[in-house]
């Protein structure tokens, strides 16, 4: 990381692990979990959030001195909504099937708490470059969890990754299925997303006891 100072690098790296938006800050769970049944949808969602957060943080950071603090929420909402409309229109134009799968959840990026949270906590008080790095870092931390969940749900649920049959063909009984392996269709149902996140939190906190909550 030659171009980035140590402090700037930390902005990107921290949210990936010990300050992860989903598992530690508990932000942005809303619009994410329902679309993680397939890896592809998770990746697209992660990239969309990355774009919206990076751009949004820069815009808000540039305007931070002229936004009256009383109406800042609505200014933030307008900025995010505009960026999300761009993402939504691009998806509808170039990946129509996928935009059907994501349905309302693209729109729900607007109320994704990570975005508002980072605007409030970071972009309103820092310059554009640091804000951009912070946005990218947090979106990457969010996307990382999304991809992990999508990976396990698609692999265990339908035996595929990105639509490719990695475990063999369940109907022709090749690969793993020849030994009597069955897909766990339960993984495709929405409740399992919550349980997978619970397990990720469990693993993460067992590895780093400093994160364990009181109570």
């Amino acid at each position: 990381m030659g171009i980035l100072s140590k402090k700037d690098a930390a902005l990107i790296l921290d949210p990936l692990a010990d300050n992860n938006p989903i598992t530690i800050q508990v932000l942005g769970i809303c619009s994410a979990l329902a679309i993680t049944a397939e890896l592809e949808a998770s990746i697209v969602m992660a990239v969309s959030v990355l774009f919206v957060m990076g751009m949004g943080n820069v815009v808000i950071s540039l305007m931070r001195n002229i936004i009256p603090s009383k109406i800042r929420i609505i200014v933030q909402l307008v900025v995010v909504a505009t960026l999300v409309i761009v993402v939504d229109q691009v998806l509808k134009a170039f990946a129509y099937e996928l935009s059907k799968t994501l349905s309302v959840f693209v729109g729900l990026i607007i109320t994704n708490c990570i975005i508002m949270g980072r605007f409030e906590a970071f972009a309103l008080a820092n310059g554009p470059k640091r804000s951009f790095l912070d946005g990218i870092g947090n979106a990457a931390g969010y996307g990382f969890i999304l991809v992990v969940i999508g990976f396990f749900r698609e692999l265990l649920g339908s035996g595929t990754l990105l639509g490719i049959k990695v475990l063999g063909d369940p109907i022709e009984k090749t690969g793993l299925y020849a030994f009597g392996y069955e897909n766990n269709g339960f993984m495709l149902l929405s409740p399992m997303a919550l349980i997978v996140v619970g397990i990720i939190i469990w693993v993460q906190r067992s590895r780093n006891p400093a994160l364990i909550e009181e109570n």
């Binding site: 149902l189 929405s190 409740p191 919550l194 996140v197 693993v203 906190r205 364990i212 909550e213 109570n215």
Partner: peptide, 23 residues
């Protein structure tokens, strides 16, 4: 509750179980 699951973790898992119930 097992220490690493306290707070957030167990809440996720309970919510998941409740969601299965609601199905």
């Amino acid at each position: 509750v097992p220490a690493p699951l306290r707070g957030l973790g167990i809440t996720f898992i309970i919510t998941g179980l409740m969601a299965i119930g609601f199905m």
